[in-house]
Simulated scan of single mutants.
Amino acid sequence: MKKILIFSASIGNGHNQTAKAMQESLGEQGYSSMIIDTLEYVSPTFHKILLESYMNLLRLSPKMWGKIYHNSERSRLIEINVLMLLANKLKKLINSVKPDAFIATHPFASCMLSVLKGRNNWSIPIYTIITDFTIHPSWINHHIDYYFIAHEQLKYLIDIYREDPEKFKAMGIPIMKKFREPLDKEKLRETFGLKNNQKCILLSGGGLGLGSMEKVLDGLNNIDLPLKTFVLTGKNQKLFRKVSKHTYRHEVVPLPFIDNVHEYLHVADLIVTKSGGLTTAEVLSKQVPMIVHNPLPGQEERNSHFLLNNGCAVHATVSEQLIYFIRELLYNPIKVDHMKQMAKRIAKPNAAEDIARFIMEDMASKAVSKVPLGGE
């Protein structure tokens, strides 16, 4: 049985979810795979410091993160020597497992694997999956066999970076199989307590500040249509308690971290969310009209531009504008239908399956054989 090591990183949940989606599809193809949380594995201390710094930066100064993101388009966020030092700690694991291929779902992992492959003259292929609707140069490294990008429209960036276009395959961002399986909408509406005439709104609350969330929920009081709003609070316990204690004109249900988001998306009339790469791919797969609210400068901002350019989302910068867009989408079926049609055109719900099949065929064509790893 072919063995593949999938290297992710717990810096944003999307990288890990992409890794899990690939593991699921590879298993269906008869491949054995293992997911490695790369930075946690090589240095738990470094990982903790980096993760805490990243989260604090996003919370306290998102504009600063935007500057770092854009500056790192010209020079690497972490020096290559540091990544080389960290990469050496992966060799013992790799030599022990003797994999047939590598998959990277985070740029740091892609870089470390590239360093190891170059220094040790490995022939094992590396496949990098880019998890946003853009291509940041930190993903681009030597010794990568193929890159999987979110959409064909991103190929102009390949020309800008002067990379080999044959290495880039526009197959989408991998999502779990459950997002593309058929569901009974009416049965789910009954399960979630939705009445026949109620509209269903999803608010992705974990990324919205408490003040902004309160304004949004209070603003919904002015909409005369019967509504039921599910607030996805994730791990934000303070927000969960705040929403639970408050009384609203319409039904409002806070939800902690859940693993059946695909079911809520299936019944949703619209979603208010930030435009993370994986979340965007999941919402597109369900063709739910999106209102993007306060995306992070950097990758989420780029994802938002992609969605706006393709007509399947609108972008609200303040809560008053957000309420306006919610009202418009609830009362304007023509616009909603257009957004759904555009989402259907650009969605790639079968990305994980397609990428797994491509990897299988590529490995077979190369007749990849296990070579002694070892190295320096």
Results as ranks from 00 to 15, higher is better:
Glu190Ile: 13
Leu39Lys: 02
Leu322Ile: 05
Phe133Tyr: 10
Gly374Ile: 13
Pro125Cys: 04
Leu307His: 00
Ser138Phe: 08
His142Tyr: 11
Arg59Ile: 09
His143Arg: 03
Gly193Tyr: 06
Ala347Val: 03
Ala364Thr: 10
His151Thr: 09
Phe192Ile: 09
Gly206Asn: 07
Pro372Trp: 15
Leu188Tyr: 06
Asp145Trp: 07
Val272Asn: 00
Leu58Tyr: 08
Arg249Ile: 08
Phe230Ser: 09
Tyr69His: 11
Val252Tyr: 02
Lys63Ile: 09
Trp139His: 02
Gly30Met: 05
Asn141Leu: 04
Tyr331Pro: 00
Glu320Met: 08
Ser369Asn: 13
Val243Met: 11
Lys344Asn: 14
Ile149Arg: 02
Ser25Leu: 10
Leu227Val: 02
Arg59Gln: 11
Asp224Asn: 09
Lys178Ser: 10
Glu28Ile: 12
Pro137Trp: 03
Val318His: 06
Val115Met: 08
Asn260Trp: 08
Leu26Pro: 02
Glu181Thr: 15
Gly209Asp: 09
Ile140Glu: 01
Asp218Lys: 14
Tyr146Trp: 13
Ile68Tyr: 13
Lys199Tyr: 03
Leu208Pro: 01
Val267Tyr: 03
Met176Asp: 12
Asn95Leu: 07
Ala351Val: 07
Gly205Met: 05
Glu52Arg: 15
Lys91Trp: 03
Glu152Ile: 12
Glu186Tyr: 13
Ala9Ile: 05
His143Glu: 11
Ile11Ser: 01
Thr105Glu: 02
Asn221Tyr: 10
Gln153Phe: 14
Thr45Leu: 15
Val292Ile: 14
Lys185Cys: 03
His246Glu: 12
Gln23Lys: 14
Lys67Gly: 01
Lys98Cys: 15
Val261Lys: 00
Met290Val: 05
His47Ser: 11
Glu263Gly: 03
His305Asp: 15
Glu190Arg: 03
Lys245His: 12
Gln321His: 08
Leu5Gln: 10
Tyr127His: 03
Leu220Ser: 04
Thr45Tyr: 11
Pro226Val: 06
Pro62Asn: 00
Ala313Phe: 09
Trp122Asn: 09
Lys274Val: 05
Asn197Ser: 10
Leu60Asp: 15
Gly374Lys: 14
Pro333Phe: 06
Phe358Met: 04
Val336Lys: 12
Val82Asp: 08
Pro107Thr: 01
Ser32Ile: 08
Arg327Asp: 15
Glu166Ser: 09
Thr191Trp: 00
Gly219Ser: 10
Met363Tyr: 11
Phe230Gly: 02
Lys2Gly: 07
Thr38Gly: 09
Asn303Ser: 00
Asn141Gly: 03
Phe358Asp: 02
Tyr331Lys: 07
Ser8Arg: 03
Leu86Pro: 10
Met171Cys: 01
Phe230Asn: 06
Glu301His: 00
Glu300Asn: 10
Trp122Asp: 08
Val371Ser: 12
Arg180Gly: 01
Lys167Tyr: 08
Ile359Ser: 01
Pro295Trp: 00
Ala281Val: 09
Phe148His: 05
Ile323Lys: 04
Ser138Arg: 13
Lys178Ile: 11
Glu166His: 07
Lys242Asn: 15
Thr280Lys: 09
Ala170Thr: 14
Leu227His: 07
Thr273Leu: 05
Gly209Pro: 00
Lys92Thr: 12
